[in-house]
Simulated assay, not measured.
Amino acid sequence: MGSTRARIAIDAMGGDNAPAEIVAGALKARQELGVEVLLVGHADQIKASLAQRKDVDISHLDGVEIVSAEEVIEMHEEPLTALKRKRKASIRVAMDLVKENRAEAVVSAGHSGAAMAAALLRLGRLPGIDRPAIGAVFPTINPNKRVLILDVGANVDCRPKFLEQFAVMGAIYSEYVLGVAQPKIGLLNIGEEPSKGNDLAVRTHQMLAENSFISFIGNAEGRDVLSGNFDVIVCDGFVGNVLLKFAEAVGEIVLQTLKEELLGQGWLGKLGTKLVEPSLRRFKQRVDHVEHGGGLLLGVAGVCIISHGSSQAQSIFNAIRLAKEAIDCEVLERIKSQYPESTQQSPVSQPSAES
């Protein structure tokens, strides 16, 4: 396993700041990571964004390719309906590039439901995986440790075997991408005892305890999520998405409150702000979703990173880096190794991703 010269398809029209910030992040990744990028979307708008950059000669863009896609799936549109109607939508064209082996990964900051639906419809699921899951990395109280939460929005309703599959995929990702030896797995619940929680939690606890592939250490309560005692925590997408949005808000509120309190103390507060500015910057890096780039959609037959809708250049860069790490660490191949090709899969049902 080593670093590869990955080709990554970027949904240049996805997100609040498309295409300018998406293009900027992709160019940064091209320059600093050595990846080849395929910018998918309105060719004229992408070229205009490139032309605005003083540091880029658009007549000599080695490793950067523009792939035309005339349509965009808007945030208010129903994912499956829009994907079927808009065959030239940027997210669909990007997924097709992976399907056709012209790219190894997709990065999108657009409609998350459309990204998941496109991945399922165009790439399909990995053998043995009933439902894909979106994994998000959270900071913990230990500055040298992170925790992977999944699912954070792909599946509102889950069965115990779905959560068990999430745990297996999360363990693989934690070990090979995040570098955690024997990652500790937890099940998000309302109490530590195996009998606590609803029927889903109780049945899932038993299945995880019996799975020899993972190191399951029990239930994780809400207060345990950021404790650093767990490396992977599994839950259904409804709870996970609420947790994700809450964590993002808390980080922003804490940072803003600290600044307001310090600045409200007059010149002494301003002096204090200058003194603690490096610490505030490090705090922001630990809690800001921008630093993590996005969530990896685990369980589909391709590397797919779903970024925050408000992503700017740095976040897109980090998302591309995340995609490259997943490729270099052969995450898909490692998940496949846990589920034989003969495993029967149930038909794909309508995705219920949070958008």
Rank of each mutant, 00 (worst) to 15 (best):
T4I: 01
A12V: 01
G15T: 10
N17M: 09
V23A: 06
A24Y: 00
E32V: 02
A43K: 13
K54M: 13
D55H: 14
V56I: 15
D57C: 04
L61R: 13
G63P: 08
V64W: 03
E71K: 10
I73Y: 10
H76N: 15
E77W: 12
L83E: 11
R92N: 12
D96R: 15
A109R: 06
G110M: 07
A114N: 08
M116E: 02
A119H: 00
P132S: 11
P132M: 09
G135R: 11
A136R: 04
P139D: 13
V147E: 00
L150T: 12
V152T: 11
D157P: 04
L163Y: 11
Q165H: 14
F166E: 06
V168R: 06
Y173L: 13
V177G: 03
A181E: 15
K184G: 04
N189A: 06
N189D: 00
G191H: 07
E192G: 01
N198M: 10
A201C: 14
R203A: 11
A209H: 14
S212F: 08
F216M: 12
V232A: 00
D236C: 02
F246G: 01
V250T: 12
E252V: 14
E252P: 03
I253N: 10
I253E: 05
L255M: 09
T257Q: 10
L258Q: 02
W267E: 15
K274R: 04
P278I: 12
L280P: 05
V287K: 05
L298N: 01
I306K: 04
H308T: 03
I320G: 04
A323T: 01
I327R: 01
C329N: 04
E333A: 08
Q338G: 00
E341V: 04
Q345L: 15
